[in-house]
Nucleic acid binder design. Structure first.
Lengths: 178, 178
DNA sequence: TAGTTAAGTCAATAATGCTGACCTATATGC
DNA sequence: GCATATAGGTCAGCATTATTGACTTAACTA
């Protein structure tokens, strides 16, 4: 391993950092939006992470619980399409949730190859608890920002996502498209 | 065939999945917001991930480039506070960015223990490219949703984040608080 | 000078993602 | 009935990004 001497990694000292290049208002607004999304998402997920940590679960488990809870009878394929991860990645998460009794599987009625996923009572209770941590934060934010802001919030987020995901959240598409 | 091997991982088959329990309007709205944030964040980050993939970089590198680019002369401590990761996690990412010539470090002028981080020209070019991929998506979303929606979007995201992060994005706090 | 702080580093571990290969069960089209 | 496609599961290995704990060096500060 080539050990760098400290000097190689250092630029000549600058008295003052160079000014941030902001080209126009529009770009500055866009960069602000990057910040906003990063911090809001960071802190929105953190409140649920705290609950998950107690149980030795991760964010991936939360996502699965959330989407199964919202779509009882969801198939594995549909969940994969939503999460955009591989079958092998989901397997680790889902097998644990099934083994621990949070999720139950039932064969499809018409097509018995399907594994329809639902939350058990235990799973519903956990999902509820996770939901409430985020709901409280979100509720405060909604009240603070006001109903008109909430409409705008939803409109922009909706426009940011894929066409398929948009159809899904609008209720006009299937989970497979998300 | 009925002669399938028994599997205690399977619940008894259910004709129809149980209905989703939606307790009141407010909760349904909150659950929708969870969906919106998930999908919007997923697709917002994906556009930059595609650029990063070509260069063998990850999302962690993008985050570092973004915040150094927005805050030239940022210290390592401040970047750690923003990203909320450990020094060891950042080290891997930052050392690569320095070694590859995206980021340069300069000792602090008053306090020479500090490593003031700035983007090199190469780093600025990459950050710009990453930014533009997200700016294009965001620009379309903003135009589609309209200026009033954008205000609401910003207000809710701002309210979702920590007090420190809020001060940071408002420009009234230091990066250390974020 | 003593203690604190900023940063770097080593070692080990965990969560979550990936690819490739292969398997079973079931459905469907001919 | 048979060939093929589809839904799902599994094994093995690997990459990225995070973690904790312990330690070091350099420089600031009381």
């Amino acid at each position: 391993m080539l050990k760098r001497r400290p000097d190689d990694r250092f630029a000549p000292p600058a008295k003052r950092p160079p000014p941030a290049p902001v080209l126009d208002i529009s770009d500055a607004q866009m960069r602000l939006a990057q910040d906003l999304l990063f911090f809001a998402y960071r802190d929105f997920t953190t409140v649920a992470d705290k609950v998950l940590e107690e149980l030795g679960l991760g964010r991936a488990h939360h996502r699965a619980l959330h989407f199964i809870g919202r779509n009882p009878g969801l198939t594995v394929s549909a969940l994969l399409a939503i999460l955009r991860i591989t079958k092998q990645s989901l397997a680790r998460v889902l097998n644990l949730l099934v083994d621990e009794g949070y999720v139950s599987q039932a064969p499809g009625y018409q097509d018995r190859r399907l594994r329809l996923l639902t939350l058990t009572e235990k799973g519903q209770a956990l999902e509820r608890r996770l939901f409430e941590s985020q709901r409280d934060l979100l509720g405060r934010a909604y009240r603070q920002a006001g109903p008109q802001a909430v409409d705008g919030f939803r409109a922009v987020l909706r426009a940011l996502m894929d066409e398929g995901a948009r159809a899904y959240v609008d209720g006009t598409g299937s989970a497979e498209d998300a």
